[in-house]
Design a protein around this nucleic acid. Structure first.
Length: 418
RNA sequence: GGAGACUUCGCCUAGUCUGGUCUAUGGCGCCGCACUGCUAAUGCGGUUGGGGUGUUAAAGCCCCUCCCGGGUUCGAAUCCCGGAGUCUCCGCCA
């Protein structure tokens, strides 16, 4: 949720942000109105309440005759206070709704436009020259690494088993990511994957993307689509020491309904309901967030270099940002079977948007609590296996193992079909 | 699943039975000042958070905040109902 002070002082910045995202500008005026109405309601209530307290004080030391006289007035007042309080409650709920309707303010410099208006910042690595490349499923099945048939039998479409070297490769990849994160001072963290509604809400995933999320009706819990959710909610309601950024590396399974993607990426494990991920998550002061964002991107690129995958970095356009993100960079790996780049990492600067909802704060130089900034970025996921298998395939269907991953597959430098 | 105890302003804690200067006690920690050759000790003072108003900024004033949400009452930390969390015991499962 956005800063109401910023909104009051500079509504045009908010309007410009809405325009960049292709979202409604009238939502800004709705919010301004809701803000004013709430303040008016608060003032009415507080005036009545102050009077009630004054009378209450006199009542406590009044003699019986005076007391009876006061009672008539206080009884009347009690009803008015109650009504005014209810009005405040409604005004606050309306304000909250209006506030939730506006996504984060887009960072200056983010490309305007929609999904296709991203800007390519750079291309890194050499695309392999493979005649008639096999796709990751063909390679994975030959290696007995990926089993989607039994995944579908047991759990349905978009589920899979990783077996043998497939399982080892994924564990190794995630371990490699975790090791890198720890090396740079991240606190390793294995998170819950079921969270309460307020945790999901606080991170902004119940807005436009609510249909993407699995919900357990009987227990009123949600399955997380990323460990960003538990890691953001981890410090909810706390005041942190942010002299230096606090960084967590979260390892978790992730669950996505993929409701709007019927018929898209149905082959293999490119788009699945459940996968594993190591996610970087930073809490820092708002003025540090921009630099932190670039650091997260650099760490993602360092991981991609370790697994020797060609990729490009894109600056995601305003209209394609998530609700909470002010700016987003994706790394996309080259997939020889598709002849194009596909997303394998995504790092978002959520500025104070998430932290304001979750009430995560720090103390400034004057000791005053201020809202923190949060950022997140992908360090490795199951999807990386797709890029690893395809880019390192050899004509005979074997797959070369990047040096960094060799220790995790028994020291082998090549995986042979069996 | 059943029974009980508990939840107070960073941490610990008094207050709840018996509703009203509770405008919440004390300790620890932290900050400032004094004393001291330094440190420590000691003394004095300050120290919840949010919101409204106000202002260049502040001060000041006001409201809310005793786990959360309702209720009773002129008035709730205190009484009643519901919920959450923590702990103990029993049952069940692994």
């Amino acid at each position: 949720m956005i800063d109401l002070r910023l909104l009051r002082d500079d509504p045009d910045t908010v309007r410009a942000s809405q325009r960049a995202r292709g979202e409604s500008e009238s939502a800004v005026d709705d919010l301004l109105r809701a803000d004013e109405e709430r303040r008016a309601a608060v003032q009415r209530f507080e005036a009545l309440r102050a009077e009630q307290k004054q009378l209450g004080k006199r009542m406590s030391k009044a003699d019986p005759a005076e007391r009876a006289e006061l009672l008539a007035r206080t009884k009347e007042l009690a009803a008015e206070v109650k009504a005014a309080e209810a009005a405040v409650g409604e005004a606050e709920a309306a304000l909250r709704r209006a506030q939730y309707a506006i996504p984060n303010i887009v960072e200056e410099g983010a490309p305007p436009g929609g999904e296709d208006d991203y800007v390519v910042l750079r291309e890194v690595g050499t695309r392999p020259d493979i005649a008639n490349p096999r796709d990751h499923l063909e390679l994975g099945e030959a290696l007995r690494a990926i089993d989607v048939e039994r995944g579908a039998k047991v759990s349905g479409s978009r589920f899979y088993f990783l077996t043998g070297v497939g399982a080892l490769l994924q564990l190794g990849l995630l371990q490699l990511a975790m090791n890198q994160a720890v090396e740079y001072g991240f606190i390793p963290c294995i998170t819950p994957t079921l969270v309460k509604p307020e945790s999901m809400e606080g991170t902004g995933f119940l807005g436009a993307h609510a249909s993407e999320v699995y919900r357990l009706e009987a227990d009123d819990l949600y399955l997380v689509g990323t460990s960003e959710v538990p890691l953001a909610a981890y410090h909810a309601g706390e005041i942190l020491d942010l002299t230096e950024p606090i960084r967590y590396a979260g390892w978790s399974s992730c669950y996505r309904r993929e409701a709007g993607s019927y018929g898209r990426d149905t082959r293999g494990i490119l788009r699945v309901h459940q996968f594993d991920k190591v996610e970087m998550f930073s809490y820092c002061r708002p003025e540090q967030a921009h630099d932190e964002h670039l650091r997260l991107l650099a760490w993602e690129e360092e991981m991609l270099a370790k697994v020797e995958i060609p990729y490009r970095v894109i600056d995601v356009a305003a209209g394609d940002l998530g609700t909470s993100a002010a700016r987003k960079y994706d790394c996309e790996a080259w997939l020889p079977s598709q002849g194009r780049y596909r997303e394998v990492t995504s790092t978002s600067n959520c500025t104070t948007f998430q932290a304001r909802r979750l009430n995560v704060r720090y103390r400034d130089e004057n000791g005053r609590p201020q809202i923190a900034a949060t950022l997140n970025g992908t360090l490795a996921t199951t999807r990386w296996l797709v890029a690893i298998l395809e880019n390192h395939q050899q004509p005979d269907g074997s797959v070369r193992v990047p040096k960094a991953l060799q220790p995790y597959v028994g020291g082998r430098d090549v995986l042979e079909p069996r």
